[in-house]
């Protein structure tokens, strides 16, 4: 079971907000700054404006060229854009109602199931810190709730805390073998891979494949684990299975696109 006392804090990434905010401030500061320069030297103000306009154009052109080069040199970039768009759409289209209802319910009566609902809803709205609080409380109230362990593992793995995530997935799998159609086992394998425990990862992912069948993501992750464990031939076979064409969701398509180019990069995940 995950060590609930020492779970790391999960914080929202600040740069997706800070970067556009800083850009707005920089743009807002340009006209007054140019006016101040103009008061002393009007020619310098014009020179600065011309240079700024030239460099802005050049930067935009360079970014366009970089994007084109990225698409040529790293074909999964297009699949990555599709995945990012799908995630943004999911974030915008995630219903705020379940979180509000769960929080309102919790004010009347506290239960593990309600904390789980709140944690799950918060995570869907990309609020990892809030999700962690509720999932921890759900497990404190009912340590035998596999869904809470599974959800906690997902939050921790996505936020880069592989060790407690692996413990959480293991607890979910122990409490309910095959939990969430094998998703807990699959992510346990991925967490083991992230921790550098490659043999364990191969074992867990093979078990998952045997019991639940393989998908694009599980095949890609199995290939990564096999390559890291030194079995290049098996890794290529797994990647090849993951790279087969088909109509896929954005996430599966991302895994398929990555699997297609894995052998180019010597199997580095």
């Amino acid at each position: 079971m995950a060590d609930l006392g020492n779970l790391p804090p999960v914080q929202r990434r600040r740069w997706p907000v800070l970067l556009p905010l800083a850009t707005v401030w920089v743009i807002a500061l340009v006209p007054p700054a140019l006016w101040l320069v103009h008061r002393g030297d009007p020619e310098l103000a014009v020179r600065l404006a011309l240079a700024g306009s030239t460099w802005t154009t050049r930067t935009l052109l360079a970014l366009a060229l970089l994007a084109a080069a990225a698409l040529l040199l790293f074909p999964p970039a297009a699949a990555g854009v599709r995945l990012a768009a799908a995630r943004t759409r999911r974030l915008l289209a995630s219903d705020r109602g379940p979180l509000q209802r769960a929080l309102a319910d919790l004010q009347h009566f506290e239960s593990a199931a309600r904390h789980l609902d709140a944690g799950r809803a918060a995570w869907l709205l990309d609020d990892g810190a809030r999700a962690l609080v509720h999932l921890r409380r759900a497990i404190e109230l009912d340590p035998a709730l596999p869904a809470a362990h599974h959800q906690l593992g997902l939050v921790l793995l996505r936020t880069g805390h592989a060790a407690p995530a692996r413990q959480a997935f293991a607890a979910a799998e122990r409490l309910d073998p095959g939990h969430a159609f094998g998703d807990a086992l699959l992510h346990q394998g991925r967490a083991a891979f992230r921790l550098g425990q490659h043999a364990d990862a191969v074992e867990l992912l093979r078990t998952h494949e045997r019991r639940h069948g393989g998908g694009r993501r599980s095949q890609l992750w199995l290939g990564d684990a096999l390559a890291a464990a030194g079995d290049r031939a098996a890794a290529r076979a797994a990647w090849s299975a993951a790279a087969a064409p088909g109509r896929l969701t954005a996430e599966e398509n991302w895994c398929r696109a990555l699997a297609r180019v894995r052998p180019w990069f010597g199997g580095r995940a």
Binding site: A28, L29, P31, H38, A45
Partner: peptide
């Protein structure tokens, strides 16, 4: 930003 763009309209120094 709004104040700054107003400023740029009133004093287009370039």
């Amino acid at each position: 930003l709004a104040a700054s763009l107003c400023f740029a309209s009133l004093l287009p120094v370039t």
